[in-house]
Design a protein around this nucleic acid. Structure first.
Length: 273
DNA sequence: AAATGAACCTGTTTGC
DNA sequence: TGCAAACAGGTTCATT
């Protein structure tokens, strides 16, 4: 579910409600996520103060006063919501963190593809999950020529390359499709066939679509919710994703769906080449 | 060695 | 109507 804009929205909504609070109690109701949550998790977390939340691509790092970090990833169906007061746990509420002000952070993830780790300061930069991440399109300065060079080196379809988190990190299926639609590049085109000027356009489109999606609080296709339990609104602006059979907003041609490496791609056969 | 497909899960939608 | 298949926002591992 959550791609960069959704994860950033969760970060922003949680931030003012957790910073400065201590973790008073931890309940792991279901430890079997992508990696099993170890028995030591709860005890190590209790008593720690949350100093901030950092985002790296689709990961959130809850910075703790001790220097430790709680790293969260939401897989396809996960989210973290904060409640003013403890509520009865719902289905798939796997981890509950009670904070010092009486509020409660809840990790919910029906498919359990998500991840929750507690790492000590020395381990953070060595985490395999974080170490291989490419540039975050909304952080730092990505050089367009470096991006173009990466495309030139690859024979795979451009869409697959955009989903590969080691090149650019943060895009998923929705925003890869949207960025390609905006830059009029067909998802099936091999990356090395994308011209330098087109690569520059594509990078601009990627940043633009991600920024707009963050501004609208992400996309709620089925059940995504932010840290306050509220939906995003970018799904109303989707021009390609999940629009197979519908008319292209530019030319009226029928949007097509193809499957690439097991993921759906959507494109306008007339606008995108 | 890059690149594809299967696997990991549960829930919802689609099609016969 | 009912049931099975297909599909879903992601990542990782095994296999070509």
């Amino acid at each position: 579910m959550p791609e960069l804009p959704e994860v950033e929205t969760i970060r922003r909504t949680l931030l003012p409600r957790v910073v400065g609070r201590r973790i008073a109690d931890v309940e792991v109701r279901e430890p079997r996520l992508r990696r099993r949550i170890p028995p030591s998790f709860a005890a190590r977390l209790v008593g720690q103060r949350i100093d901030g939340i950092e985002r790296r691509a689709k990961y959130l790092l809850f910075r703790l006063a001790s220097g430790d970090a709680m790293v969260a990833h939401f897989g396809m169906s996960g989210t973290i919501v904060i409640h003013d007061a403890p509520a009865a746990p719902g289905q798939h509420d796997h981890v509950r963190l009670r904070l010092s002000d009486g509020s409660e952070l809840v990790l919910n993830d029906p498919r359990r593809f998500g991840l929750l780790l507690l790492v000590s300061p020395g381990e953070i930069e060595d985490l395999p999950e974080l170490r291989h991440l490419g540039d975050d399109p909304l952080q730092g300065d990505i050089r367009a020529d470096r991006f173009a060079a990466a495309l030139r080196r690859s024979r795979r379809p451009i869409k697959n390359l955009l989903l590969d988190q080691t090149v650019l990190a943060g895009m998923g299926n929705i925003y890869a499709n949207e960025a390609l639609f905006r830059s009029r590049i067909r998802p099936t085109r091999r990356a090395f066939r994308v011209r330098v000027a087109e690569a520059e356009d594509l990078l601009r489109a990627i940043r633009q679509v991600l920024r707009e999606a963050v501004d609208l609080g992400g996309s709620s296709i089925a059940d995504y919710r932010d840290g306050n339990g509220r939906p995003g609104y970018f799904q109303l602006r989707l021009q390609a994703y999940d629009r197979a059979g519908k008319p292209c907003v530019h030319c009226g041609a029928t949007i097509r769906r193809v499957v690439q490496s097991g993921r759906s791609s959507f494109y306008c056969p007339k606008c995108q080449h």
